[in-house]
Design a protein around this nucleic acid. Structure first.
Lengths: 339, 339
DNA sequence: ATAATTTATGAAAACGTTTGCAAAACTATT
DNA sequence: AATAGTTTTGCAAACGTTTTCATAAATTAT
């Protein structure tokens, strides 16, 4: 029976119950083979009887790592982050760490404050999203020399190790696809959250690819990350600008765009092609299925967790940057432009 | 400048840098008004100079709470959990706690192990999803007397405090709606993850409501939580059973059902009505918009965080159960059954 | 100027572990 | 039966804080 004492039982309670010293109890927990099987059994029983649970905080005082990893994200409830967090969380747990998660809502000052709190907890490592952070954020990670990774974006020269895909390539790839299909009247609809360098990169990539072929977007509209906002904003673009194709900054916007087209009686892809970026869960199930560029969330999350684990273990041969490939997924929502 | 010493600086480093004792440094941090403005300034400068960050583990040794709350969920990347976690996380951060998040993938033994790990970290409180947990899970929470809440499900007699909605009511409400519209040939499609009492409750509620009116489901099919699986399974139901209405265990299945209907040329809601449960993000944006029963994720998350905060603060007047209302949202995907 | 307050600081104990070292209890060897 | 070696155990220090209590310094009142 677990005891009902008001305070939680500690190693002394166990020692008392087993009639040994606390050293021996500690040894059962940490180096079981150093203690006589007989005594060990007695102590293990005492542990059960007292309901003793080790205190990480006290262990930490001895230089044991905290066994926690901090993850700071803009938000959880964007499909794509949810997927990434899920994978990262699993990978981190598998390595025996607990995950401390915090959300800053695209507020970089807040991100810094949350990071400081994580550091008070002496997290063994930290993962952040993207490269856009306060200088203080980078600074504190360096001065506390806490292992850190950045997920999602890729760049070859980074202040902290990164695992990600190039949003610039993704944007470019999406634009190329539309242009390859013969589209010239292309509208760009991107999401606008501040502190979000992903959207900016994709836009940038798309613009550049188009410029290379001498094509100018007939519209650049920013909208919110939500199907309804995207639907509303695409509606007006479709009505006023009559694009033959819409390049959407992410799949959620892409889905909004498809509904907008349906609403005003345009058929996708016959009357208008719609291109997403991301390959979110469900994007391949729409009718027609959404053409998009896959950002490999699973691979990124797993790789980042592995990298962080190695950094924490003090390994030195850890690649500082890791690029995961984006991939074009042409599906039903895009088609050749008919003259 | 933050110092680059190999080990992180501690309170002694600060004391040395400021030429005072560690007691005074500690006082600056905890009771600033007890120290001479002059000295305080000097110490604050030293803190900046050394890059000192308080060590929560050491504070804990003095009886300070850990400032963490544990949340164990089946998974993050189901829309509805993502929403719940997001809200809970915000509410918990607002109260000054950090959130330790763990996912068990519907494995209750794993849930128990994760919980134990959280308790090693001496989380101040714990939140779980639903009522289906190992006996050991309940036991350890009680024996460690750790404040805990259960989110999502509601019941009036619970072993630990709960904040949730009645999935039984939700199931019943969805069934009532279809029957009110004159449907008698109703198929039930629910998701089947083990360790998931939500789905079971909804099914149960729906069955009971139907039985009350003497109607028997013409089919009961279980599927996975994914648009594609649901689409596939609904396809066969639609073809073989010819229901006039499908009651789906959640909105994701509902969306799969709509695609399935579209695929075989059935018009929603004219040929078949489709009813979801949940009101996930985006459910009101489909074409036609999905009729559903709203499960108030935001309200639940906020309320649960508040309840847990109070429990941790030792307040005694905290309601042990809190029911959030489910609400019928009739939209375009359901209509009167035409004979 | 001295005594009586008040304010500011420091010394040391406590929190719950782990571990190096030393002592005690066995075992094996002569 | 005594010695050497091995295994098992306990003592005490260390980890980084906070806080109580005591003392020193500054202020105020005489």
């Amino acid at each position: 029976m677990a005891q009902k004492k008001s305070a939680n039982s500690d190693i002394f309670d166990v020692a008392r119950a087993a009639g040994v010293s606390i050293s021996t109890v500690s040894r059962v927990l940490n180096h079981p083979n150093l203690v006589k099987p007989d005594t060990r059994k007695r102590i293990e029983d005492a542990i059960k009887a007292t309901g003793y649970i080790r205190n990480r905080a006290a262990q930490m005082m001895h230089g044991r790592r905290s066994g926690t990893i901090g993850l700071v994200v803009p938000t959880i409830d964007h499909t794509i982050f949810a997927e990434l967090i899920q994978v990262f969380s699993e990978a981190v747990e598998e390595q025996g760490f607990s995950l401390i998660l915090a959300t800053h809502g695209y507020d970089l000052e807040r991100e810094y404050q949350l990071l400081r709190k994580l550091l008070e907890h002496r997290v063994d490592g930290v993962a952040l999203i993207g490269f856009e952070h306060l200088d203080e954020t980078y600074g504190v990670l360096e001065s506390q020399n806490t292992p850190a990774v950045t997920m999602w974006n890729y760049a070859s020269d980074t202040r902290i190790p990164c695992v990600g895909a190039s949003n610039i390539s993704a944007g470019a790839m999406a634009a190329e696809h539309l242009m390859d299909l013969g589209h010239k009247e292309i509208a760009l609809i991107i999401s606008s959250a501040g502190g979000n360098d992903r959207a900016a990169d994709r836009l940038h990539g798309a613009r550049k690819a188009m410029k290379n072929r001498g094509i100018t977007p007939i519209a650049e509209v920013s909208t919110q990350y939500s199907v309804s906002a995207a639907k509303r904003d695409c509606l007006s673009v479709l009505e006023t600008q009559k694009p033959t194709a819409i390049l959407c900054g992410n799949d959620v916007i892409g889905i909004g765009a498809m509904y907008a087209a349906a609403r005003i009686g345009l058929s996708v892809p016959k009357d208008v092609s719609i291109m997403g970026i991301g390959d979110f869960k469900g994007s391949d199930e729409t009718e027609p299925a959404l053409s998009t560029v896959r950002l490999p969330a699973r691979e990124i999350g797993q790789r980042a967790a592995k990298t962080l684990g190695r950094l924490i273990a003090g390994q030195t041969d850890v690649p500082a940057t890791w690029q995961c490939d984006v991939r074009l997924l042409p599906r039903g929502s895009t088609a050749k432009h008919e003259l």
